[in-house]
């Protein structure tokens, strides 16, 4: 499920023979043969929503193979193949909430990687809430469904962001929740980029080591 079959990272070189500049999340999972950790999940969410927001993307995340972690810590969606996601009225335009839902599901699967069907990972409540809201699986309490309403506010003045959330409607909402997870919200872009940069670097290091062993 989720396209989590064997990945083939190939060599540490890119198509032109130079060093690789990006790894898919699927490659990362397969190389480590273990799930991502919570901090990496927060970071991939933040970084991916940042690039989706900038690109105004309209395709869903179908598997971990679609998520690219770049050397510089950026996280993007892989370009769509010509016939990808063409089943919805012959086009690939999805709403922002549908794309966020698909991202939440794939991030959860990355956290759940390798676990048996009858096992469940114990997530920290904030991360579980983020995924619940992204995947639209959160139980509505019926009393306050006004959404996140983060439209024009700065990232730095959302000290009580976590308490207000009842729905996520935009990439910005996800990013604000991820930022609110940190002690200093204004540090979110720098911090999460560093986490993703380290994820790339450590995975490449492991890949190089395993290649030498082989």
């Amino acid at each position: 499920a989720g396209g989590e079959g064997p990945a083939e990272p190939g060599t540490a070189s890119g198509a032109a023979g130079g060093p690789r500049d990006a790894l898919s999340l699927r490659e990362i999972l397969c190389l480590y043969n273990q799930p991502i950790n919570e901090e990496q999940a927060w970071a991939v969410c933040f970084q991916c929503c940042g690039s989706l927001r900038a690109a105004a993307a309209r395709r869903r995340v179908r598997s971990a193979a679609d998520i690219r972690v770049w050397r510089d810590g950026a996280v993007t969606l892989a370009p769509a193949a010509a016939d990808d996601d063409a089943g919805k009225l012959g086009c690939s335009h999805y709403t922002e909430t549908e794309i966020i839902e698909s991202l939440g599901i794939i991030i959860y699967k990355a956290l759940d990687y390798g676990l048996k069907e009858n096992e469940e990972r114990e997530l920290s409540p904030p991360l579980e809430q983020l995924i619940d809201l992204m995947a639209n699986t959160a139980e509505a309490d019926g009393s306050n469904d006004e959404g996140y309403e983060a439209a024009d506010e700065g990232l730095e003045d959302e000290g009580d962001a976590k308490r207000k959330v009842s729905a996520i409607r935009s990439y910005r909402d996800v990013m604000k929740l991820c930022a609110a997870h940190l002690p200093a919200e204004s540090e979110a872009p720098k911090h999460y980029q560093a986490v993703c940069r380290a994820l790339f670097a450590e995975t490449m290091e492991l890949h190089t080591f395993l290649t030498k062993i082989k």
């Binding site: 991502i36 919570e38 990496q40 959860y108 096992e119 469940e120 990972r121 450590e202």
Partner: peptide
């Protein structure tokens, strides 16, 4: 470095794993 420590519990019908599974 590179370790991910986490607790595993039995899957629960009302847990997030079940809810995510229903979506896929």
């Amino acid at each position: 470095k590179g370790k991910s420590l986490y607790k595993i519990k039995p899957r629960h019908d009302s847990g997030i794993k079940a809810k995510i599974s229903m979506k896929t």
